[in-house]
Simulated assay, not measured.
Amino acid sequence: MFVLAHLSDPHLGPIPEARISELLGKRFFGMMNWIGARRRNFGQATLAALLTDLLAQPTDHIAVTGDLVNVSLPAEFDTGATFLASLGTPDKVTVIPGNHDTYVHSALSYHLEHWAPFLSGDETHPGTPLDRESFPFVRRRGPVAIVGVSTAVPTAYFLASGEVGGAQLERLRGILHELKKEGLFRVVMIHHPPVGERHYHRDLRDAEAFRRVISEAGAELVLHGHDHRASLGRISSNGELIPVVGVPSASAGPEDGRGAGRYNLYRISGEPGAWACIMESRGYAPGDATVQLRDTRQIIGLP
């Protein structure tokens, strides 16, 4: 059995001090959002307790689906790198960027520079500069192939949307076909949810195109963040229904309206054509300040 952990959207705080020139434009509104709401709802103590519980669980790998930072100040990416290292070594931890990790155009490469060991594929030589063409990347871990997709693109004021892009989608299609031939359990990591309805300012612009690729090429599991809510959707593929799973922010407190902080464990077993996956959710319940097992369900295979 292979055990994969999934957490998302920690929005690590506090926001570091910055020059006035760094806070002009979109970052100013992000700072106001942090001061007005996020710093009350997203706490270091909340995250620390959740991570203590996570690190006490036997896992083979940890997947982090983006939004480690808040307004993409340079110092935030050092904090993000420290956070990732606290979860484990780069061979045991995989991250993809979220929209807050590319909040402004000037920060477009920061996550690629600071988190490279955690978001590069197995075939990427250490020290090789990464860019958007580096996605999707693939990490093979036992029976599991982890495929990292980037939807992180800078957007205008008050927008938090994302996009995979045509070139990345075509690469993803080829990668998924190849991994199927290898008989691996394919886990696709993407920040923006590819299923469900949401306002245009927060959506995945090419969600329909992404779903077509997954439907045609197949996958076993799709993991995402962004909504700060627990969710379970499906994408139909060749007579199968592929689970699409979202988790709340890992830093969200028990009183957060969109969902108290949680992470998921996926217990993967079986073989090609007969995979099974049990999803276990651990974290806070509304009004409950203790981290506990909250839900267990089989999402792939028959009970």
Rank of each mutant, 00 (worst) to 15 (best):
residue 1 M to F: 10
residue 2 F to Y: 08
residue 4 L to Y: 06
residue 9 D to M: 04
residue 9 D to F: 02
residue 13 G to R: 03
residue 14 P to V: 13
residue 16 P to A: 01
residue 17 E to W: 03
residue 18 A to T: 14
residue 24 L to Y: 12
residue 24 L to C: 07
residue 26 K to L: 10
residue 26 K to W: 04
residue 27 R to F: 01
residue 29 F to K: 07
residue 33 N to C: 14
residue 34 W to V: 08
residue 35 I to G: 10
residue 35 I to P: 07
residue 40 R to S: 05
residue 40 R to E: 06
residue 41 N to D: 09
residue 43 G to F: 09
residue 44 Q to N: 07
residue 49 A to K: 04
residue 49 A to I: 11
residue 50 L to H: 03
residue 51 L to N: 03
residue 57 Q to L: 13
residue 59 T to D: 10
residue 61 H to Q: 11
residue 62 I to P: 00
residue 63 A to S: 02
residue 67 D to S: 02
residue 68 L to F: 12
residue 69 V to I: 05
residue 70 N to Q: 12
residue 71 V to Y: 11
residue 73 L to D: 02
residue 75 A to C: 04
residue 76 E to I: 06
residue 78 D to C: 09
residue 82 T to K: 14
residue 89 T to H: 01
residue 90 P to W: 03
residue 91 D to L: 15
residue 93 V to N: 07
residue 93 V to D: 09
residue 94 T to S: 02
residue 99 N to W: 10
residue 100 H to Q: 01
residue 101 D to C: 05
residue 104 V to L: 06
residue 105 H to M: 11
residue 110 Y to W: 12
residue 110 Y to K: 04
residue 116 A to W: 12
residue 118 F to K: 01
residue 119 L to C: 10
residue 120 S to W: 08
residue 129 P to G: 04
residue 130 L to M: 11
residue 131 D to N: 13
residue 134 S to E: 12
residue 138 V to M: 13
residue 141 R to K: 13
residue 141 R to N: 11
residue 142 G to S: 00
residue 145 A to V: 04
residue 147 V to H: 01
residue 152 A to E: 05
residue 152 A to V: 13
residue 155 T to H: 04
residue 156 A to N: 07
residue 157 Y to I: 14
residue 158 F to Y: 09
residue 161 S to I: 02
residue 162 G to D: 00
residue 165 G to D: 04
residue 166 G to R: 14
residue 167 A to C: 07
residue 170 E to V: 12
residue 173 R to N: 03
residue 179 L to A: 04
residue 181 K to L: 14
residue 183 G to H: 08
residue 184 L to S: 02
residue 184 L to Q: 00
residue 185 F to D: 03
residue 186 R to F: 09
residue 187 V to N: 00
residue 188 V to G: 14
residue 188 V to P: 01
residue 191 H to A: 11
residue 194 P to Y: 06
residue 195 V to W: 15
residue 195 V to L: 09
residue 196 G to Y: 08
residue 197 E to Q: 06
residue 202 R to H: 11
residue 202 R to A: 14
residue 203 D to F: 14
residue 205 R to E: 05
residue 209 A to C: 04
residue 211 R to I: 02
residue 211 R to C: 08
residue 215 S to Y: 08
residue 216 E to G: 14
residue 217 A to N: 12
residue 219 A to F: 13
residue 219 A to K: 05
residue 222 V to E: 05
residue 223 L to I: 10
residue 227 D to E: 09
residue 227 D to I: 10
residue 230 A to D: 04
residue 233 G to V: 14
residue 234 R to F: 13
residue 234 R to T: 14
residue 237 S to D: 00
residue 240 E to M: 11
residue 243 P to D: 08
residue 246 G to W: 04
residue 251 S to L: 01
residue 253 G to V: 09
residue 253 G to P: 13
residue 255 E to L: 14
residue 255 E to H: 15
residue 260 A to W: 00
residue 260 A to L: 03
residue 263 Y to E: 05
residue 264 N to W: 12
residue 265 L to T: 03
residue 267 R to P: 07
residue 267 R to T: 15
residue 267 R to A: 13
residue 270 G to L: 05
residue 272 P to N: 10
residue 276 A to D: 14
residue 276 A to G: 15
residue 280 E to N: 13
residue 280 E to G: 06
residue 281 S to Q: 07
residue 284 Y to A: 01
residue 286 P to T: 07
residue 286 P to G: 15
residue 289 A to E: 05
residue 293 L to Q: 14
residue 296 T to M: 12
residue 297 R to Q: 13
residue 299 I to C: 06
residue 299 I to M: 03
residue 299 I to Q: 10
residue 302 L to C: 11
residue 302 L to E: 09
residue 303 P to A: 15
